[in-house]
Design a protein around this nucleic acid. Structure first.
Lengths: 350, 350
DNA sequence: TTGTACGCGTTATCAA
DNA sequence: TTGATAACGCGTACAA
C-alpha cells in the first residue's frame, strides 16, 4: 500500500525518467544538451515528456543552474511611447533567444528605481536594462558586487565598465539648434523635462546652449522651463514663455509630447506655427506626425536601441563577452513646425 | 585548514544564521513572518542581514515555497497606448504588493501568444493576465491543469470559471452608434481592427450593427473595412470608404488610432470634419485630444482595468479567493468630430 | 520562541 | 552515451 508520488502534483524529472526507463540525468541532458544523447533515447525521452506534459520546475532549475534566463528592465514609465517602443524591441530579441523579460517602472523616482533594481536582482535577473546613466554610485557597486551585467540605454556617455546602447543627446540637440540659428532664429526658449536625475534631459538643454554659444550668442540668455512629461504641461509652459517680451521666435522642446502641448497652446494664443513662432520636438514619435503642423524633431531609433540593448546584454551573460559601448545615429526630421522667423508659407512657395 | 564556504560567493541563509548565532529557521522566519520571532532576535538577525548584504536566493526560495511572487502579462503589444496604460497600472499594484511582473507580447498572433503563455508558466508565474477571451480551449485546459489563476482583461464576457476585468465593448459601440443615428446619420461606415482572434474588435462592430438594427436600418448595409492598427492604415481605409457613392456621413472607427488616420485622410481629401463627414474613435487615448478636430470617442478606463486585474489576480493567488467577473463602465466623450450631418459650426453657435 | 532535519526538482560531476 | 549522486539554498513540519 505504498506509492511513490500520489500527490496529484505536476510530473517531475524523475517521473519522466522512470516512465522512459532512463536516469534523471539523461532526461535533463535530453532537455538541455540534446547532442549529448543518442538519437534513440532522445526520441523516447521526448515522447515521454510530451505524454506526461512535463515542464521543468523553474525554481529547481534556477537553483541548480544558477541562471534564470530572465532579464529585468527598469524604466521610468511604460506610458511613454519612447520607452514602450524600446521595451517591445528589447523583449522581442529576448524571446527570440529563449529568454523572458521582467519589467518595473520607477515613475522617474530614483528611490523607487533603486528599489526596483534590487527587486530585479532578488528575483534572479541574469541581466538588467537601465535608462540613463545617472544614479547613486552605490547602486552600481551593488550591481558589480553581484556580478549582474547591466546595459544602460538612452545615453551614449555611459558608466565606465558598463555596457551602454544610446545616442548623443547633446549633439543631437545642438545640431537642431544650430539649424534653427542658421535659419535666423536668435531668441530661442526651451521647454525641458525635469533635469534632476535625468541626464538625457540635461544633455538636450546643454546641446541647445552649445549651439547658441558656437554662434556667438549668449547661452545663458536662453529661458529654460522645466516641467512634467505631459501635453498639458507643455501647453502651460509655452504660454508662460510667450509672456516674455520680446517673445522668442523659436521654442525648442525636450520631447515631442511637450512640443505637442506647445503647438496646441500656440493655436489657442492665436499664433501661427511656424509663421509667428517655430516649435521643435525631440524623439520623433507618431504624435509628431499627427499634429498640425507636423513637428520638426530629432529622430531617435528607439526600437533599434531596445533590440541592441538586449543583444549586448545576452552576449555578456551567455558568452561572457566584454561590456560594449554602442552609439547610435540620430537625425533631424524636417517637417513643418520649424521655419525662418516670420516665414510666410505662400510667399515662400515662389 | 578547513573553511566552510570560501567560495567568495553571495552570502546564504546559513551564513546569516551563523553570524547572528541563530538557526537558519529563525533567519527564515525573521524574513518571512517576523511576528513569529522575538523582538530582540529579530533586531539582531536584521542587523546581520544588512551587514552581510544578504538577499535570498530566488531559485531556492521558489523551490521551497512553491511560489515565485511573479505574475505574467501577455499582451498584443506594448506599442499601443491602451495596453501600455493597463500594464503600467497592473505593474504598480503588483509592486505595491511585493510582486513582480513578467511581460511578453504576442503581436496579435495566437500561436505566439500560446507560446508566451507556456513560457510564463514555465517561468513560474503565480498568475497570468491575458487580453480578451478568445483563444484555443486547449490553452485554458492547460492553465486549469496547472492551477494557474488567470484574469482576462479588456472584455466583460469572460470564460466561465475565470476572472475577468473588462467592459462591454458591444454595448459601448452600440451606444455611440445610437447617438450618431439620433443625430441624423443614416449612412454609416466602419473601420475596424482585424476581427479574427479579436473579440473586442468584433464586439465593437457588432455594437454598431445592433444600433442600426434597433433604429430600423439594415445592419448589413454598413460597409466594414478591417485593417491593421496604425494611423496610416486608418488613412487608407478612410480613403477607400469615401470612394463609395453615396458617401457615408459618418465613419466609425474601432479605435482612436484608426480614427486619427481617418481624420488625416479627410483633411487630405479636402473634407471638413464634422461638417462633411463625422468620425468617431474608441478608447480615449491622448491622441484623441490632440488632433483637429478632437475625437468624439468612448472612454475606456484602461488604468483602472489594469489595476483591478492585478488585485483580482493577487486575491486569487494569495487568499485563494474565487474568480471574479468585474465589468467597468465606459462613457462617451463628446468632442468635435461627431455632429449632425451637414452641421455648420458657425450657424450652430446661434 | 527557537532549533533540527528533511524535502523541494534540477543540474553537474564523476564513474562506468 | 549513460547512470548514481552530491550539491544548490530555502521553507516548514515537528520537536523542544
Amino acid at each position: 500500500m505504498e506509492q511513490k508520488t500520489p500527490k496529484s502534483d505536476l510530473p517531475t524529472l524523475e517521473d519522466v525518467a522512470r516512465a522512459a526507463g532512463v536516469s534523471t540525468a539523461t532526461v535533463s541532458r535530453t532537455l538541455n544538451s540534446p547532442d549529448q544523447v543518442s538519437e534513440r533515447t532522445r526520441q523516447r525521452v521526448m515522447a515521454t515528456v510530451r505524454a506526461l506534459r512535463y515542464s521543468p520546475n523553474f525554481g529547481a532549475r534556477a537553483l541548480a543552474a544558477k541562471r534564470t534566463n530572465t532579464y529585468g528592465a527598469v524604466i521610468p514609465t511604460m506610458e511613454n511611447a519612447i520607452f514602450a517602443r524600446g521595451l517591445e524591441a528589447f523583449q522581442k530579441v529576448l524571446v527570440a533567444n529563449g529568454a523572458t523579460m521582467l519589467v518595473a517602472s520607477s515613475s522617474y523616482d530614483p528611490a523607487i528605481e533603486e528599489d526596483q533594481i534590487r527587486t530585479m536582482i532578488a528575483r534572479g535577473a541574469d541581466g538588467i536594462l537601465l535608462i540613463g546613466a545617472e544614479r547613486d554610485p552605490e547602486i552600481y557597486d551593488f550591481l558589480k558586487e553581484r556580478h549582474i551585467p547591466v546595459v544602460i540605454a538612452w545615453t551614449g556617455t555611459g558608466v565606465s565598465a558598463l555596457s551602454c546602447v544610446g545616442f548623443d543627446n547633446q549633439a543631437a540637440a545642438r545640431e537642431l539648434a544650430a539649424r534653427a540659428i542658421g535659419l535666423g532664429h536668435r531668441r530661442i526658449a526651451f521647454i525641458s523635462a525635469f533635469t534632476q536625475n535625468n541626464d538625457r534631459a540635461r544633455d538636450r538643454v546643454a546641446g541647445a546652449r552649445a549651439a547658441l554659444d558656437a554662434a556667438g550668442l549668449d547661452p545663458d540668455a536662453m529661458p529654460v522651463l522645466e516641467t512634467k512629461y505631459s501635453i498639458q504641461c507643455g501647453r502651460d509652459a509655452f504660454v508662460e514663455l510667450m509672456n516674455a517680451s520680446p517673445r522668442p521666435t523659436l521654442v525648442m522642446c525636450g520631447n515631442d509630447v511637450l512640443a505637442a502641448g506647445a503647438v496646441r497652446a500656440a493655436h489657442e494664443l492665436g499664433l501661427k506655427v511656424p509663421a509667428d513662432v517655430s516649435i521643435t520636438g525631440f524623439d520623433d514619435i507618431e504624435l509628431a506626425t499627427v499634429i498640425q503642423p507636423a513637428l520638426t524633431t530629432v529622430h531617435v531609433p528607439h526600437r533599434q536601441m531596445g533590440g541592441l540593448a538586449a543583444e549586448v546584454l545576452l552576449a555578456q551573460v551567455r558568452d561572457n563577452s566584454a561590456p560594449q559601448q554602442v552609439n547610435l545615429e540620430t537625425y533631424i526630421v524636417e517637417r513643418a513646425s520649424l521655419a525662418a522667423p516670420g516665414f510666410q508659407p505662400t510667399v515662400a512657395a515662389e
